[in-house]
């Protein structure tokens, strides 16, 4: 089997005496869309932040393309991080920059391309995420929630990352916008060959675009697999999650995909 894009082994993360991650193992395969679910407060965001290096870990190994992140020099690590795009839950767009300047920001810092090409590529990203060209000159405070998510996605794509981290990409969007956003991620993933790690609570997203779903509980991954496999799971929390009042009444994933297209 090929080396996974990201491999996490024996991860321990604690806040004081409270252990959030307890020997967590996880593989993110290259080119897949991995959904990540878990109860609120179970530490989904903590795991994302730990992989991204925003949260210190007490023990464990995180490997990217088979290389241990802890053993990389600052320069190598910088190069690995340039291959990542992150969509934060609230967008985290720089509020004092316009949308176009936001998308150009990572390019400006890391690349020696001409301002003209930088502007062109920013407009291309804007088109890829389905924003109209006139959104480029707007400030984040002038955008709606859905547009902020799209603009933030455009910024995450600025350096053509191989791996895309999405933290609750469809939260706060209406079902139609959420569906469109799912479709957008699926299209981009297919076009750009992305590996996508998606923390989500949106069952529709899980059914529509995730190749595999990982379930977090008690500080580790308690189940991982295609959604059809998880539906068969006997684990009480997973049963409740997928067969509870909000999960019930959903068709098979294949059928839903047909309806969507």
């Amino acid at each position: 089997m090929k080396t996974p894009a990201i491999r996490v082994r024996g991860l321990d993360v604690a806040f004081g005496a409270r252990k959030v991650m307890d020997g967590l193992d996880l593989d993110i395969r290259r080119g897949e869309v991995l959904g990540f679910v878990g109860a609120s407060g179970a530490g989904k965001s903590v795991l994302t932040r730990t992989i991204l290096g925003l949260q210190p870990k007490q023990a464990g190994v995180i490997e990217v393309d088979g290389r241990d992140l802890d053993k990389l020099t600052a320069q190598e690590r910088g190069r690995v991080e340039r291959g990542w795009g992150v969509l934060f839950q609230q967008g985290a767009l720089f509020s004092s920059l316009t949308v176009r300047q936001n998308i150009e920001a990572p390019m400006r810092e890391h690349l020696d391309i001409s301002p003209a090409l930088r502007a062109e590529l920013a407009m291309l990203k804007l088109r890829l995420v389905g924003l109209p060209p006139d959104a480029a000159a707007k400030f984040p405070s002038e955008l709606s929630g859905g547009m902020i998510k799209r603009a933030a996605l455009a910024r995450a794509l600025a350096l053509d990352p191989g791996v895309l981290f999405l933290d609750e990409p469809t939260s706060g969007l209406d079902p139609i916008s959420a569906g469109e956003f799912d479709a957008l991620i699926a299209t981009l993933q297919a076009t750009l060959g992305l590996t996508v790690f998606m923390v989500t609570h949106d069952l529709d997203s899980l059914y529509a675009i995730c190749d595999r779903v990982a379930v977090l509980g008690q500080g580790r991954v308690i189940a991982i697999g295609a959604i059809a496999e998880l539906l068969q799971s006997e684990e009480p929390w997973i049963r409740e999650y997928f067969h509870g009042p909000r999960g019930a009444g959903r068709g098979a994933p294949a059928k839903r995909r047909m309806q969507a297209s």
């Binding site: 502007a119 062109e120 291309l124 088109r127 890829l128 000159a137 299209t187 297919a190 076009t191 750009l192």
Partner: peptide, 18 residues
């Protein structure tokens, strides 16, 4: 094929410099 897809999705279009 994958390059053709990219060329189609990321095709050049003139950009108004504003």
């Amino acid at each position: 094929p994958e390059h053709a897809t990219l060329l189609r999705e990321a095709a050049y279009a003139p950009v108004d410099p504003g």
